[in-house]
Computed example of a mutant assay.
Amino acid sequence: MKLLSQDQALSRLSLKNPIHFLALGFGSGLAAKAPGTFGTLAAIPVYLLLAQLPLAWYLAATLVCVIAGIYICDKAANDMGVHDHGAIVWDEVAGLLITMIAAPAGILWLAVGFALFRLFDILKPWPIRWLDAKVEGGFGIMIDDVLAGVFALICLQVIVVISQ
């Protein structure tokens, strides 16, 4: 892809386009600082809505978010002309949904899940960092956050078990 400035890349997107709107995390990815954190914050209402569903439906909706995210992120990245631009935060939405699978209800558990997901997404321990560097396209944009979500999910569930 051609090297573009951040502003040039963003100017190629429109919040009126439903794919761009989702890729930008309902606009949260446009935050000047820490767009990934704002994208994860934007995922909270999505999680709260889906958390009302039975677990099987929650899992199905999360899977749809992940699979659709491959297309959404790929399309936005191609339209921007930049691979994995920081404003593309749909992967954070999917990552938080994964983190919160079967989490107990309550603000405390949501805060712990949020913090764990952000920790793994920022630190990118192996193999997350390797995947982030080596895998291209929409799948590449999504896979590091999916794996960060899985790591955070495991840690959250361990904390839940220990706290009982």
Rank of each mutant, 00 (worst) to 15 (best):
L3F: 08
L10H: 07
R12E: 09
L13G: 14
L15D: 09
L15F: 07
K16I: 04
N17V: 02
F21C: 06
L22K: 03
L22I: 05
L24E: 11
S28D: 06
A31D: 07
K33A: 09
K33E: 09
A34W: 12
P35D: 04
T37K: 11
A42L: 04
A43W: 04
I44T: 05
L50I: 00
A51V: 01
L63A: 15
L63T: 15
V64Q: 02
V66R: 01
G69K: 00
Y71K: 02
D74K: 13
N78I: 04
D79H: 14
G81I: 05
I88P: 04
D91Y: 02
V93Q: 01
A94K: 10
I98L: 06
A105S: 15
W109A: 11
A111R: 03
F114Q: 03
F114V: 06
A115R: 13
A115L: 14
F117T: 00
L119N: 10
L119I: 07
L119Q: 11
D121M: 09
L123Y: 14
W126F: 15
R129F: 02
W130Y: 14
L131V: 12
G137N: 07
G140M: 03
M142L: 10
L147K: 04
L147A: 07
L147E: 04
A152I: 01
Q157E: 08
V158T: 10
I159Q: 08
V161N: 12
V161H: 14
